[in-house]
Design a protein around this nucleic acid. Structure first.
Lengths: 363, 363
DNA sequence: CCACTCTTGTCAACCGGTTGCCAAAAATTG
DNA sequence: CAATTTTTGGCAACCGGTTGACAAGAGTGG
């Protein structure tokens, strides 16, 4: 007799009287187990003696109903322990109260703080964060982005690997904010590397270094170019020699592999594209008998988790990654509320964190 | 004349003829910008010349329609670049193709691999992962879980901080899988610490150690008790003395603080609740002039990211965290497909990873 | 060739909210 | 107190799929 999918609202309130004879035949339980599958605005309407649409207005359009009915409805909602069904809401409105975040690699600690910053800020404003990973592949990234885009209100791309045009295309569909890369016409949050870098170079120069090497990151990374520009400029200013070395991959292993090139370059100070490279490089150099920082100074980038586990602890240019996540979410939610996006890239400050891996050169 | 929310399907196919005069007044763009808001099964039905319900069946009920119409419909869908609207699907069915993962702390590296394992496995089976964080607070955790539960098909709790009854309550609503804790009646994935621990203790005994200290983690953590039990049993077996020391918090800082107690205990070998404690402890002991491992051996737990950044690199009992994530998702999806959950906790193997921080005691 | 299954497509109701339009009720004004 | 404006609540259509019931069409056997 029952035709299938109905919620069972028979047992609200402790009054479990005679369920079998009255309601059971017409109300099979719905979502799996548990008979409590939540109340709807129709239940509230019945209890409050008003129309469902009035309930809807009372609950989502402040001021549209009189204070009196508002109260009645809110009480009824509370009594029934009502929770909106996000899907039912999303269907007609398109609003999902959800934002997507795509990172290149979930296990890359660079992203941890971004994720946390975004999650915290989103939660605070009642948005849910959906996380996806591109496994460093531009294609996967585009796929993931497309898939996410249909279920979220907006998207945050952290250090995206896909090209600018793809990002603009996404951005034409729904609001998109980019972290760690600058793209015309798309709101961006980008750490301003120059402050941190010039602090680092100045400090190295002051410690007697005259030749510096920059170990670059992956070619698709927009940031690696920026950082090299910054290093080059700062070195010119401080009259240091600067060479750029390429790494095979931006990991501890990549750092180990580039150690030989570093030695051959004759540089006594190294700035690397990221902390992982710095750590690998330091391990390999120490294993070969070099003393850090007496013979060579090493400066990383990002101040990732674990940068202070090493001996000596790593000197590094800190990017405020948590803040990047927070800012990106804030911009996104502002845009969603109809505000304009900032027309220039939002820049956040970097700073040098001096630890043990950099210092005076002992000739 | 237009009454509001309609998708603009006027411009399918490159034929952009005369939009203004025909469609513009009746078809305001819907979801923000971009006129492409996606095709529906109604569009497909029209194009294929069948009923929408047939389209629905062709696309989701394999075998329900004839091969011929199936093909026609699939072609039409491809031509229109159709994508199901997840909300429209979720509304009547309750299926969301989404699973929730709650972790205590997003920045705690213990969870990184769990997250990645879960994300990867979920993606492979077309499920989206939604991540939430409890900030180590049982209350926040319950709230987050409740909120998530209404929008996901199932939930994974990694090292939950809430009590057993809350978890059982959630589990009565929707499928729940727990990682790193064992609860009767709820499917669990738990690393079997005994193998790793006995390897560790045996190795320490073989290196001349006779007194061992275990540095415990937070009291709410079910795991800390398990690990202590394992250590105690293994020490009895190997005839080592074992004492349990408490830490203030399971972090690097907590490790530093417990150094004094470790020294006073007279133990020459330490096993800590997690790697962070081990790292902090090692830093503090080395700062005080102790040589690791010559004077004291340190063994951590989990093999987190960064455990090999230290000098010496950290010896640790590795839990296969990625596998935990994978297994948990697999179990959850199996349950969602109607299979039975395993009635015993699924156990995954731990193993000792010997690095430099443990070794022979040089008296 | 007809009665009887089995397959396949259509109809219509439904999931749970949202919102434009309208009319009744209340408040304001002359 | 009547006329007018403003509130406030109700009606009904709609978002885009899903699914039970049913009937027309295809296939089968006697």
């Amino acid at each position: 007799m029952a035709t299938g999918l109905f919620c069972c609202h028979a047992v609200y309130d402790g009054a479990v009287t005679d369920v079998t004879s009255t309601g059971a035949a017409t109300a099979p339980a719905k979502r799996g187990r548990g008979e409590k599958s939540s109340a709807t605005i129709y239940d509230i309407a019945k209890l409050a003696g008003v129309n469902p649409s009035t309930v809807s207005r009372a609950l989502s359009k402040p001021g549209r109903v009189s204070a009196k009915t508002q109260k009645i409805i809110e009480d009824a909602a509370a009594e029934l322990n009502y929770q909106v069904n996000p899907f039912a809401r999303a269907l007609p409105t398109g609003r999902t109260q959800t934002i997507g975040l795509i990172v290149a690699d979930i296990t890359n600690p660079t992203f941890f703080d971004i994720i946390r910053g975004a999650e915290t800020t989103g939660s605070a404003r009642d948005y849910t964060l959906v996380l996806a990973e591109s496994a460093e592949s531009p294609e996967t990234e585009v796929t993931a982005a497309r898939r996410l885009l249909s279920t979220v209100d907006g998207l945050i791309l952290a250090s995206p690997r896909m090209d600018d045009d793809h990002i603009r295309a996404l951005s034409a569909d729904k609001p998109v904010v980019v972290i760690n890369r600058q793209i015309d016409g798309v709101p961006c949050v980008v750490p301003d590397v120059n402050k941190g870098i010039s602090e680092a170079v100045r400090s190295l120069a002051a410690n007697g270094h005259t030749n510096l090497a920059y170990v670059a990151g992956p070619a698709q990374s927009w940031m690696t170019g920026r950082r090299w520009e910054g290093v080059k400029a700062a070195c010119e200013w401080s009259k240091l020699g600067a060479v750029r070395l390429e790494s095979s991959k931006p990991t501890v292993d990549g750092g180990r592999q580039v150690a030989r090139d570093v030695l051959e370059s004759g540089a006594t100070a190294v700035i690397t594209y990221n902390d992982l490279l710095a750590i690998g490089l330091m391990q390999e150099l120490q294993a070969g008998g070099m003393r850090v920082p007496d013979q060579i100074s090493i400066v990383g980038f990002d101040d990732i988790f674990g940068a202070d586990f090493t001996t000596p602890a790593l000197t590094t240019v800190r990017s405020p990654l948590g803040e990047c996540g927070t800012r990106a979410v804030t911009i996104l939610l502002d845009v969603l509320q109809g505000h304009d996006a900032p027309d220039e890239a939002v820049s956040v400050e970097t700073e040098l964190v001096v630890r043990g891996s950099s210092g005076r050169l002992l000739a």
